[in-house]
Simulated assay, not measured.
Amino acid sequence: LSAAAPEIERETAEDGRRLAGLEERVRGERRREAGLLSQEQALAEELTLRAERSATLDRERESLAKEHKRLCGDVAGSDAALAAITAEREPLRAEATGAESALRLLGESLETARAVLVEEDRARDHAGFSLERATQDLEILRERIIDDLDLPHADDVLSWEIRVDPRPLAAREAEIARLRERLRRVGYVGDDAVVDFERENAQQTYLREQLADVEGAAAALRDLAADLRRMMRERFDETFALVATVFAEAFAALFGGGTAQLTLTTGDTGSEPGIEIIAQPPGKRLQNLALLSGGERALTAAALLFAILKVNPVPFCLLDEVDAALDEANIIRFREQLQELAGQTQIIVVTHNRGTIEIADTLYGVSMGADGVSQVLSLRLSESLPAD
């Protein structure tokens, strides 16, 4: 028994599972049965609706058949009436065609009459305008005759003897305009006209003498300006030649060789020429100043400045950090040129370069103390250095 108990339990469990499956299947079948019953009820309701709809359609079909029969009778009557109307319309159409033709002819006649009336109105208006313009021209002509010829009545000219002028109408009109302008300028001629003429004549003579003096002074000033320009050009050419020569020497001295030249560039028409610097430092090709390095440009500018100061010395010269871009080798040649130039010009140099400071006769420095106040210090090296 103990040995058969597990087998019985397995069978019992298996039967339980089968029973649960059968119960679940029964429930499914019941749900399916309920769905089928619902469908059957819906189909029955739809069948009832279709039967009612069929009865309605039968009634409508009978009604439409009766209506069709009635409309056929109406169509037969309408055809008979249409035939009678068609028979009566032909004479009316012929009469309408004749009436339209007559109406068209009357319209054309009316348009022609209107065009003729418009042309006559236009001609009448034009004639009225011409008459009004002629009347205005006649009045203007009468006023001109009275004003220009100083006559009491314009009709008095009709009694004058007419002399034909052979000149063209344009020439005669121009002559009349010229004489009228002269009369306007002369104005009213009084008893003191001779005195006024003598006074104006004297004033005109005086003004002519003054004009001659002014023209002579202007000619003298133009000659003087030409002489000044010629003298300035000559002085400029001489100074430029000297500066160019000294510049080449100063350039070679500052660069330790090389060549440089100053050339005049051609200016535009009526403008002054410019100056171009062409430099060739040692070991480089001849090129424009703009193509040199910063130090080379600074040294070239210093050479030009030294050349100008040597040709045209000045009492003093102020140089502000011109040696900032120079190296040690160039500083030595730069200060040698400064010492040479110091014999004829007092030079004030603003610099931070020790090599330039060493050749100074007097030093001025600005220092700031702990209290933030700037102090100026001076030292005369020519007195402080011992003699050799």
Rank of each mutant, 00 (worst) to 15 (best):
E139T: 11
D156P: 00
S130R: 08
A219I: 12
R182Y: 05
A94C: 09
E181V: 02
E88F: 00
E95K: 09
I140T: 14
P166V: 02
V116I: 15
E173R: 09
R89A: 11
R133H: 10
E108N: 14
L131N: 08
S159I: 06
P152W: 03
T97L: 09
I140K: 11
T112L: 13
A115M: 07
A134Q: 03
R144S: 09
E90V: 14
L82E: 13
P168R: 02
D191Q: 09
Y206E: 12
D137T: 13
D213Y: 12
E175G: 07
A220W: 14
A84F: 10
L151R: 00
D213F: 11
L169P: 00
E95L: 12
E198D: 06
D137N: 12
E108D: 15
R163K: 14
R93W: 08
P152T: 03
R142E: 05
L169F: 02
R93E: 12
T86W: 02
R185N: 04
S109W: 09
A102C: 07
L131A: 10
A217H: 10
I176P: 00
Q136I: 13
R172D: 02
A83V: 05
V195H: 06
E143S: 12
E215Y: 02
R89C: 05
A218G: 00
P152V: 00
A99I: 14
A113E: 14
R185S: 06
D191K: 04
L138H: 11
E175K: 07
L149K: 02
S109R: 14
A193L: 03
E88A: 03
A83D: 05
R178H: 04
L207D: 10
Q204I: 12
V186H: 10
R104C: 05
A127L: 06
R167I: 00
E90Y: 13
Y206H: 13
V186N: 06
E132M: 11
E161G: 04
T86P: 00
I162C: 03
V157R: 01
A217D: 05
R104F: 07
Q203W: 04
T205P: 00
E95G: 09
E120P: 01
E198L: 01
D121F: 11
A87L: 04
V189I: 05
F197T: 10
A177T: 03
V189R: 00
Q136C: 11
L141N: 09
P166M: 01
L117Y: 06
L149P: 01
E215K: 03
E100L: 10
G190S: 01
A212W: 07
L211M: 04
A113F: 10
E111C: 15
A99Q: 08
L138P: 00
A134I: 01
L106D: 13
E143D: 12
L92P: 00
D191I: 09
L110T: 15
L207I: 12
V118Y: 15
